[in-house]
């Protein structure tokens, strides 16, 4: 498969922020700052797989509590079969709204979305998005796929 060159981490963050808005989650998700408490990502993950990310799990996510990231990250993300991918530093997202780290985190959630049972719905939504966003999303998926373990 061809690759499209290294990802610009800021562009990745911006494009995936646009993508995550297509989930129509309750929490506002227009800016990097909106994402820092982890609530949007938890709600997006629940839409991706409401059996795995069930109500008991999401009840551990509190908008005003600082340890949401450990819940989202350890339970939601680490199960993916990828190697050699620099995992996001969630403390930088929570404390400094770091867009590069947020981009990595959203990239992993994108990986969940395009591998889940309802992937058709998510992929078709991506295909309706602006071409520049699609291009970044494609590159992000290609990067993940290149690091997938069998």
């Amino acid at each position: 498969m061809s690759t499209s060159g290294p990802l610009d981490r800021l562009e990745l963050c911006e494009s995936l922020l646009t993508w995550v808005q297509t989930f129509g989650v309750e929490a506002q998700c227009k800016t990097v700052e909106d994402m820092t408490n982890g609530v949007v990502m938890a709600q997006a993950l629940q839409k991706i797989d409401e059996v795995y990310f069930n109500d008991a799990w999401i009840s551990r996510i509190k908008p005003d509590v600082g340890d949401n990231w450990s819940v989202v990250f350890s339970y939601g993300i680490l199960g993916q079969h990828i190697n050699d991918f620099t995992l996001p530093d969630v403390s930088l997202i929570g404390e400094h709204s770091d867009p590069a780290e947020l981009g990595r985190m959203l990239q992993l959630i994108l990986g969940c979305a395009v591998n889940c049972e309802q992937k058709q719905e998510y992929i078709q939504t991506i295909m309706m998005m602006e071409e520049s966003v699609q291009h970044v999303v494609m590159t992000a998926i290609q990067e993940l796929m290149s690091k997938e373990t069998p």
Partner: peptide
């Protein structure tokens, strides 16, 4: 005209990629 051709090519690459993703076997979630 060249721009239109380049645009169509990009569109084709994107469509090919996402269509191949659609036909890929679904992995385990999470």
């Amino acid at each position: 005209d060249a721009n239109m051709k380049a645009g169509a090519a990009t569109e084709g690459v994107l469509a090919n990629f996402f269509n191949s993703l659609l036909s890929k076997k679904t992995g385990s979630p999470g």
